[in-house]
Amino acid sequence: MTYEEFADARLSALLRYAVMLTGDPHQAQDLVQETMVRVQLNWRRVARSDAPERYVRRMLTNQFIDWRRGSWARRVLLRGEPDEALPAPSDHAQSAVDRDQVWSWLSRLPRRQRATLVLRYYEDLPDAEIAEILGCAVGTVRSCISRALATLRAEYVEVC
């Protein structure tokens, strides 16, 4: 597989994944760009791995988790929340607000926990694969998810 074929096939999926990780389309774009630049420069190594897609996803996830180290992440986000680009809620107003709150609480989670939730509930990956992407044990993934969910539930209780 060449880099071009890979980008044709996977770039939009990676962008979606990055949006879920960062919660912001601009940061998602930066994150994907930074990762894909490295992918392209080191394409031979990436292509030689068993599953290039998973390899790249792992690079992207690590980049996200470590982003304070990178210069692109030092920028300050000045846009207010919630995002105006969202489709208007079509159902009951209060329930829409509640659900948006889930999104804003997400941003307060540690990055690693957030990444775990995205991989579990957006990408629907099995625990074993999540563990591989994050480079940790399966048990760590499970405890990560349950801790993140517990945090979100506690927020729920406070609001209700």
Partner: peptide
């Protein structure tokens, strides 16, 4: 969990188009 799935699904619309990203890369 369902709320999470729904929140993620609604944000899919935020995904930037691939063309400009590809060129920038």
């Amino acid at each position: 969990e369902d709320d999470l799935r729904a929140a993620f699904a609604r944000r899919e619309a935020l995904t930037p188009p691939t063309g400009p990203v590809r060129a920038a890369i």
